[in-house]
């Protein structure tokens, strides 16, 4: 094979990939709701990464002389909570916790789900065992499974990450398995096998990249679920513990003061809703952009 042709072959897929990403992005930004969602997600990432720069006060520092100041107060534009802690600063640090917990839970869930899905879809002998295990995990309503895991491991934010990631595994495994089953029948996979490529190489280099579309959509939507579940578990007192500025825990703490200081529950609630909404609409739009025929809901 002449060197020029070989180089072309190496370059072309990269160019094609760039074009594909550009096409998907163009489709994505045609959806107005997705654009709003993307802006919210970017805003959350910026707030989370540069939290110390955006927060005007220490989020856990108490000052009872400033307790329950309403929004719009000088120096505390979102007001303060019952311990005089600045609501804006707590919200900003809460964005960091919610994002990192979401990413951690989704990443762990993907690692488990992708591994099980690849093995189950590729090796027929493992399929039965893995899928029965997945069925078993599906037999628990998600929040119940998470609570059982927390009951075993104890209450902490790290255990919430583990619980939510285990909850994500069965859905992810099923999605990946479905994709693997269709991809492994393709001719190029048979070609790779006949060339003597190892199973690991075929799975990681050739099958996995072709299963990425549904995985990306799942991960985006799962971020919404992970953030919402983290907040729910923290609200129940099973996740972040005081004085951690986690949004769900903030609502839980604010419940006793909602008659006198409703902003203590209204503000973190709106933050959760916006972020969850953002990941949901971007996930929806990504699904349409990546493959209009694909529908996870069905």
């Amino acid at each position: 094979m002449p060197a020029e042709t070989a180089t072309k072959e190496l370059i072309l897929p990269a160019k094609k990939k760039e074009w594909e990403i550009g096409r998907i992005f163009k489709r994505l930004i045609k959806n107005k709701a997705a654009v709003i969602g993307l802006i919210i997600i970017i805003l959350q990432i910026v707030l989370a990464v540069f939290a110390p720069a955006f927060a005007a006060h220490n989020p856990v520092k108490q000052d009872l002389s400033l307790a329950e100041l309403p929004p719009g107060t000088d120096g505390h534009w979102l007001g303060t909570d019952n311990y005089g802690r600045d609501m804006w600063s707590r919200l900003v640090y809460g964005a960091r916790i919610s994002l990192f917990v979401g990413i951690g839970a989704v990443a762990l869930g993907l690692a488990g789900g992708i591994t099980l899905g690849l093995l189950s879809g590729y090796y027929r002998k493992l399929d039965g065992i893995i899928m029965r295990f997945v069925d078993l995990l599906f037999a628990f309503p998600g929040i119940l499974l998470a609570m059982l895991i927390i009951a075993i491991l104890g209450t902490s934010l790290l255990n919430v990450v583990i619980a939510i990631s285990i909850w994500s595994i069965p859905t992810c495994a099923r999605i990946v398995r479905g994709s693997v089953l269709s991809v492994k029948k393709q001719e190029y996979i048979l070609a790779m096998k006949s060339l003597g490529a190892s199973d690991t190489r075929i799975l990681i280099k050739h099958i996995l990249p072709n299963c990425m579309a549904p995985i990306i959509v799942f991960a985006t939507m799962r971020m919404a679920t992970a953030i919402l579940s983290t907040a729910s578990l923290s609200f129940l007192g099973l996740g972040a513990q005081p004085p951690t500025p986690e949004w769900g825990a903030m609502i839980s703490a604010g419940q006793d003061f909602m008659w006198t200081s409703p902003h203590m529950i209204v503000i973190p609630g709106i933050a959760i809703m916006c972020v969850v909404f953002a990941f949901n609409v971007v996930g929806d739009a990504l699904r349409d952009a990546l493959d209009p025929g694909m529908n996870l809901e069905n």
């Binding site: 709701a33 919404a224 609200f235 909602m258 529950i265 609630g269 809703m273 969850v276 949901n280």
Partner: peptide, 18 residues
């Protein structure tokens, strides 16, 4: 309906009570 999926139900409950 998208907002409905995104609302934390514990928060909605607190707001409804309020």
């Amino acid at each position: 309906s998208l907002a409905g999926i995104s609302i934390p139900n514990f928060w909605l409950g607190a707001i409804l009570i309020l």
